[in-house]
């Protein structure tokens, strides 16, 4: 099944990104396709390459980059939401790309399910 995911909260402040990540991993393990992960609202902060958590904590941003590399995931950051919050190509972590809100709508149209994670 094709599943799309959208994340509306930033890393660390809220559990949304963690839950979404573990959900995606479980879906991939079960043989589902993650059609796209779309980052919106403060969720765009999940794409900041400037993130540097303490060494004994999980690295949420790097974890998404790694999952994207391993499974060729399409991680899309909303351009309008990103510019509002200072996320641009210069500080975009590997595996993410910046694009329009249309990518969220398209994911909703093309995927069998769209699951939202937020506050």
């Amino acid at each position: 099944m094709k599943i799309a995911v959208t994340i509306n909260e930033g890393p660390y402040q809220h559990q949304a990104s963690d839950t979404a990540y573990l959900f995606c991993k479980a879906a991939l393990e079960k043989g589902h396709e993650i059609r796209r992960v779309f980052f919106y609202n403060d969720g765009v902060n999940n794409a900041s390459s400037l993130t540097e958590p303490p060494l004994d904590d999980r690295n949420i941003v790097a974890r998404w980059s790694k999952l994207a590399e391993e499974h060729k995931l399409d991680l899309v950051v909303c351009v309008a939401a990103a510019l509002r919050r200072g996320i641009r190509d210069e500080n975009l972590a590997p595996g993410f790309r910046i694009s329009g809100l249309g990518q969220l709508v398209e994911a909703g149209i093309e995927a069998d399910r769209l699951v939202t994670f937020g506050d």
Binding site: N41, L101, G102
Partner: peptide, 14 residues
């Protein structure tokens, strides 16, 4: 930001 998604969705003729 919800309103912004609404407008784009309409532009996709949904």
């Amino acid at each position: 930001e919800s309103l912004e998604v609404v407008l784009i969705t309409a532009a996709f003729d949904q």
